[in-house]
Amino acid sequence: METIPVEHGLILAGILFCLGLIGVLTRRNIVFVLMSLEVMLNASGLAFIVAATRWGHAEGQVMFLMILTLAAAEVAVGLGLIIQMFRRYQTVDISVLSEMKG
């Protein structure tokens, strides 16, 4: 069976992670920030799976399952906070939430 080289998988994971990171850093809309976070989580999940396949271990798959659960919980809490935020401030712009500055 023709296997995809492990490097390709890792590079794809890295690109996804960077895309997500850039999204987190540049987006002002908090919904997009949350989505970018999801991308980053999944990128790391992909890296786990690639690595696990390469070494033939099951732990990577287990880690990915855990990341999935984590992401689900995170999205649930995050969306809840976003709704609260929208109710309070009538906006989803993250930069208005800068009251805790020194």
Binding site: V24, T26, V33, I94, S95, L97, S98, M100, K101, G102
Partner: peptide, 8 residues
Amino acid sequence: KTQTGSLR
């Protein structure tokens, strides 16, 4: 000054 309160 670095404590801007901005998440990003």
